[in-house]
């Protein structure tokens, strides 16, 4: 258990570094001294950071392996696109900031509702069975989104399932996904979303509820004996993570011109899980670093051309092998005394 002071310092450093980075990057954008590839990646990086931090809430803090996190991102992305298109076409709302704000809030709300609906059955299961059911829900969401058609006519939204004959302008076109999306996401909005996520997650973790969530993770039976309502606290972590993923999805969806439902496949859920595991299970600043580094890495490896993803795979395996090697672990412990990996120890139990 970290002391209160050490925790405050870590949190302050995390916020401080992020704010400093944001200011530097904004200045660089204004100076035009930033490469175009990096500039294009800023919004996706923000959404992946939010995804990683929220998944860490489920995997690290609550101790349940979820393999379907991209499903919530998908729900958030497509609801955000529909809300934004509806506000623009139906109500003529030209103000992009307000529209983006409403779209992100709606994406978070709808994903949160689905998180609650899915959480009720999922959290009854344990271990690998829980993991496979989250995988199944992720695949179901992808498959169902492939069949949803939405159009806007005046101020009314029309929904069709497996039925593309809808009046008005199509917003979602089944397997073709969202086409001709007005990209309204900005880096500033992404940064604010990252900060909001951090405030929510760090405060939740350091609150009475957060301690209850971690107690349920460390020893379910002991926590239950102390009068902790396990289901309630596991749901709290799961729904919060789903809502945050929905918001990240809305931000991501509204930064692209087109978006297909198959984008949010099992592979994306796994990618986010890789961020969480490499950054350190239960380690929130670690998730941020890993999400940023691993989003930029495949682009920086572009000089390897066709060998790019191969190099990425080999790096991933090597990092996992080295970080779990007893000799390397001992070395770390000697270099940084007092370092504890409490999240991992807990998951092992």
């Amino acid at each position: 258990m970290k002391t209160k002071k050490a925790r405050l310092i870590t949190n302050a450093v995390t916020y401080g570094v992020l704010i400093a980075l944001f200011i530097i990057l904004t200045v660089m954008i204004n100076n035009k001294s930033i490469t175009r590839t990096l500039k294009g990646q800023l919004i996706p990086i923000c959404s992946w950071i939010v995804m990683a931090v929220s998944l860490n809430l489920v995997v690290g803090i609550s101790g349940e392996l979820s393999l379907g996190h991209a499903g919530f991102m998908s729900i958030g992305a497509f609801s955000g696109i529909v809300i934004s298109g509806w506000l623009l076409n139906g109500f003529g709302m030209e103000d992009t900031t307000l529209r983006l704000l409403l779209a992100i809030i709606a994406g978070g709300l709808i994903a949160g509702i689905f998180g609650a609906l899915i959480g009720i059955p999922v959290l009854r299961l344990r271990g690998d069975y829980l993991a496979i059911v989250t995988l199944a829900f992720g695949e179901i969401i992808k498959n169902v989104m492939n069949c949803v058609y939405t159009s806007v006519e005046g101020t009314t939204l029309h929904f069709g399932f497996l039925n593309s004959a809808l009046p008005g302008t199509l917003l979602l076109n089944g397997p073709m996904g969202a086409v001709k999306v007005k990209a309204i996401s900005t880096f500033t909005a992404g940064f604010i979303l990252v900060m909001v996520t951090l405030v929510i997650v760090l405060n939740l973790v350091n609150s009475r509820s957060g301690r209850a969530i971690m107690a349920a993770r460390d020893n379910r039976i002991a926590a239950e004996a102390m009068g902790i309502n396990i289901t309630k606290y596991k749901m709290m972590a799961f729904v919060t993570a789903a809502a945050l993923a929905g918001m990240a999805g809305a931000l991501y969806g509204l930064s692209m011109a087109t978006l297909v439902p198959t984008k949010f496949s099992f592979n994306e859920s796994i990618n986010v899980l890789v961020f969480v595991v490499l950054g350190g299970i239960g380690n929130i600043p670690g998730s941020i670093v890993a999400a940023t580094a691993l989003t930029i890495l495949p682009e920086t490896l572009r000089f390897l051309q066709n060998y790019r993803m191969l190099a990425y795979a080999i790096l991933l395996i090597l990092v996992m092998l080295l970080s779990n090697n007893p000799m390397v672990k001992n070395l770390w412990r000697r270099l940084i005394p007092g370092r504890k990996d409490n999240g991992e120890e807990a998951l092992k139990a």
Binding site: V59, V274, L278, I317
Partner: peptide, 10 residues
Amino acid sequence: LAVLITAIGM
């Protein structure tokens, strides 16, 4: 989880 990620890398 570490083994799972390694398997995915594989």
